[in-house]
Each structure stands twice: as C-alpha cells, then as structure tokens.
Amino acid sequence: MATIERYAAFTDDPAGGNPAGVVRDAQGLDDAGMLKIAAEVGYSETAFLTEHRGDGRYRVRFFSPLAEVPFCGHATVATAVALGPGEHVFTTNAGDVPVTVDTAGWAMLTSVAPSVADLAPGDLEALLDVLRWRPDDLDPELPPRVAYAGAHHPVLAAASRQRLADLDYDFDGLKALMEARGWTTIQLVFRTGADSFDVRNPFPVGGVVEDPATGAAAAALGGYLRALRIVGDDAVVHLRQGDDLGRPSRLTVRLLPGEAGVRVSGKAVPLPA
C-alpha cells in the first residue's frame, strides 16, 4: 500500500503554504490508482515518484483530485524536501526539473524554458466574463498574456489590490474555458513594488477554488516579466500568495542572465499526521 506524506510548501509554518501529498513508492500504481489517491488526499496536487533512476533522478507525476497536471511547483518543492538535502532531478511530463534542497528545508527548482504568447481572439473577453472582471479592472502596464514554464497560465494584472481581493468567479464557467484552452491555473497579480507582487490562482480544473501557492505559475510569471522586459535578465521577484485564504505563502522567483529556465524557491515543512 502506498505511503502518503503531507507537506506544506512555500512556508515555514504548517498553518500556511500550500499542502501537497507526496507518494515516494508509487512504482506499482497505475493512472487510476494515482488519481484515486489524489482525490482521497484532497489537496490541489499530490506528487507520485513512479521510478527511482539513481543519482538523485526520479520520474515524477502530479495529480489533482480531478486530473493529471504536467507540472506542479509546490508539490515539486514538497517532494524535494521530503527526499532530503542535495541535488535532485525530477523528470516530469513537461521535462526535467532540477531541484536543490539545503539542510534547512529550502528548495529551489529550475523550470523548463518558459514561453509567452498572446491570448487568442475572444479569450480575454471570455476570461474577464467568467472572472466577473471589467476591462478597466486591468493594469494597463501589465498586458494580458498566456505564460508557460511547464504548464500554461493566463496572466492578468489587477489595477487595484481590492480587485484582487474581491475574487468571486464563475467556477463552472472558468473550468469549462480552462479545459477548452488547456490552461492549468489563472495567474492573477497585483504589482506591489518594483520587484514584488501579490498573486492569486484560481484552479477549478483541479477541483480547487484557489491555490494558496503555485510554483508553476510563479515560474511562468517570471518568464512573462522577462519576456515583456518588466524586469531585467538578472532579477529577484518576491511573490505573496495565500494571504486572502488565511494560508500565507512566500515564493521567490530568480532570473539569471543566460539561463533559460526560471528559478523558484521556498521552504516546505511536514504537516502533522
């Protein structure tokens, strides 16, 4: 029988961060078995190590309660911390993701190469409609885009912190739109400083109203900020997430000159049994 470990990622407090399940002995599980466990655990994602390849390399798959996702940042951080200090490489459905863990339980992942694209015609209007936002709710300095760093996330910037706080969307409508477009979460942001953002992430396709911390979307946002030259090629960006849910989470995004991937770091701690 699979052993399920539980961690909170992007926090040093079990009451904060985003909970993730970790199953290290998933070699004998099929897709239905992994989905069943993820649904029973009930977190936004559970990570399954389906193959141990030696030298710190693992095949890792991620399941929400409703479906498999190609890459999940917070479950990556949780899994790496569960494995312990050192260098790990996770082969995910999106590609190889190196993760470094220190002795204090801090993990830093490096995403696959990000990309940024325009929203297809009509998609912005449809997205605003199901979010119950208006065009003038958007920050004109941060144009809407779809960003990718292992999973696809539309990035919408709110013109005010109050707009970000008042999240009340059409769950079924957004879920249907996301499923049709292949989007994993929606990255809603408000810029609080030159190198800082408050962020929220609706995740109805996973059966979750909102993610308290979303490492994959953080990596995608880093790629977005670099591609649109909102920050430089050498930048550190600080994200606050989960405060509106009562589960404060802190994510650090690092961009390095000449490095294609985006680094995302944070701490993870075990949850009480």
Rank of each mutant, 00 (worst) to 15 (best):
E40D: 08
N93F: 01
G206V: 07
A75H: 01
T79M: 05
V269N: 08
F171L: 11
A219D: 06
L251W: 02
T252E: 15
A20S: 10
R161W: 00
V269M: 14
T184N: 07
P135E: 01
H153W: 11
G105F: 07
P154N: 08
G16L: 03
D198L: 11
A75W: 04
V23D: 02
V146Y: 01
L156G: 00
L138P: 04
R53G: 00
L225T: 03
W106D: 05
D137F: 07
M1S: 14
V231N: 13
G42R: 07
L131R: 11
P19E: 07
T79I: 11
S115P: 04
P154I: 10
R240S: 13
R132W: 12
S64G: 09
F171Y: 13
E51F: 00
G28E: 08
L164Q: 11
H238G: 00
V205D: 00
G73R: 12
L83W: 06
R59K: 15
Y43H: 15
D234N: 10
T50A: 02
V130N: 02
A235L: 04
G86V: 02
P270K: 02
P19L: 00
V130T: 14
W106M: 09
Q162G: 14
H238P: 01
E40N: 11
R226V: 10
L167H: 06
G33Q: 12
D170E: 02
E179L: 15
E87H: 04
P14N: 07
L188K: 03
E125L: 03
P144S: 06
L128I: 14
R61C: 01
A75N: 02
P202Q: 13
R247N: 07
A20Q: 01
L83D: 09
T110R: 13
D30N: 13
V89E: 12
V23E: 00
L177F: 05
G28M: 03
A82S: 15
G246W: 08
S115H: 14
A104V: 02
V89S: 05
G207V: 05
V116M: 10
P144W: 06
T46K: 05
T46G: 07
A235Y: 03
H52D: 11
T103E: 15
R6M: 12
R161Q: 13
R226I: 03
L49Q: 12
G105K: 10
R247H: 12
H152A: 15
